[in-house]
Amino acid sequence: MILREGSKLVYHRLAWKEPFAPHLLQVLYEDDDMVALNKPSGLQVLPKGIFQQHTVLAQLQWKEWKMPPSRCSKRKNVQLHPVPVHRLGRGTSGLLLCAKTKLAKVQLASYFAEGAANAEKKRDETEVGKERKISKFYRALVTGILEHDEDVVTQPIGLVHYPGVAEGLYVACSSGKPAMSKVCVLERLAHQNQTLVQVEIHSGRPHQIRIHLAYIGHPLLDDPLYCIGGQPKFHDLESTSTDISFAYDGGYERPLQPVPGDCGYHLHAHWLVLSHPTTNKVMRN
C-alpha cells in the first residue's frame, strides 16, 4: 500500500533465539581504569549477526561497576563506560583488555591506533617495537613443522568478495593494508606434525594471525576457513549464491561455506605489555 504523511509502519519480527555461547569471564586484572578478562573460545566480543546479547560487551554493561569513593571525590568527571578496547575472534580465547571509563577508553584506543600507524611506516621491526605502547602476544598451534625459529611476516591483508559475508572477507592480498607479525617457535611436535608458536602482532588487521600463519604454509590447526596461502578453503567464490530464506530465529539461513566467526582453531591471547592509561606505568598481564 502507499503510505501517507503521518502513517506509522510497524514491523513484527520473530522472537530472537541466539545460539548458546559460553559466558564465564575470568577477571585476570582490574583497577579503577581497566579490566583484563580471560575470554573463552566461542564467546563473541561485540554484537554482530546472530549474536546480540551473548557477547562480552553485554556482560560488561550488565555488571554493576563501582568506583571507589576516593576516586570519585578526586575526579568528579569520571564516567563509567565499560567497553572492550580491542577484539578477539569468536573462536580465539584468552586475554581481552577492556576500559572502565571513557578517558581510559580513549587513551587505550590511541595505543592501538598508534601501533597500526607505525606498522604502515617503512621502518625496521626494532624501531617499530620501541615506539609501541602496547604489545600483544598470542600462542597458536599450527599444522606442519616450522623450519626457522623466528620469522617476520609482512604480507598485506585486504578484502575480497565472499558469499555469506556482506562486508567481504579478509585474506592475504597484495593490494591490502600493511601488516606485521613476528612468529617464534616454542615447541616442535614432530610426532604430530604440529608446531606451537608465539606470535607478536605489530598491527591489528582482522584475522591477522590466522591469515599470516596460513600464508607461510602453516595454518592454525583445525582452522575451518583459512588454508595455505592465506586464502579461504572455498575458492569458487563467483559461482555460489547465498540462500536468503528466513531461518527459524528470524534471521537468515547460515551460509553454506565457512565464515570468519566459525570456531575450532587453536589460538590463545596469552599476554600483553602496555603503558597504564593513567599512571603511564609499564604493566605486563
Rank of each mutant, 00 (worst) to 15 (best):
F51E: 09
K39A: 02
T242S: 03
G144M: 04
R4N: 11
I211Y: 14
H218V: 03
V85K: 01
Q194L: 11
R75P: 03
L169I: 04
A113T: 09
S175Y: 11
A172T: 07
V10Y: 02
G217M: 08
G94M: 02
L95K: 14
Q53Y: 06
H212T: 13
V199G: 05
V165A: 04
H148S: 13
E150M: 01
L9Q: 03
V197K: 01
E147P: 08
Q257F: 03
K233Y: 11
Y215A: 10
T143H: 14
N285S: 12
V78P: 01
E18V: 06
L225G: 06
P68I: 05
G229S: 04
V273Q: 11
V85G: 06
N38Q: 10
R90Y: 06
I157R: 07
M283Y: 15
E200S: 09
D31E: 11
L196D: 05
S93W: 01
P19T: 04
C72R: 15
K63M: 04
V10W: 06
K136C: 09
F234C: 09
G89P: 03
I228A: 14
L3W: 06
K48G: 03
L141I: 06
L225P: 07
G168L: 11
W16M: 13
M67D: 09
R210Q: 13
T92L: 02
C263F: 09
K100P: 04
W16P: 07
I244D: 06
H12Q: 12
L272M: 12
A166E: 15
T240S: 02
E147A: 14
A109F: 04
H191I: 13
Y162E: 11
N280H: 09
Q52W: 06
W16D: 09
Y226L: 08
D236V: 07
I244Y: 08
P219S: 01
C184W: 00
V128N: 08
R71W: 14
E147H: 14
N77A: 11
S7P: 00
N77H: 08
C263R: 09
N118C: 04
V35W: 00
D32R: 13
L196R: 10
Y248W: 12
V85D: 03
V45T: 02
K105I: 00
Q208L: 06
T278R: 15
L256N: 10
A179V: 13
T55G: 04
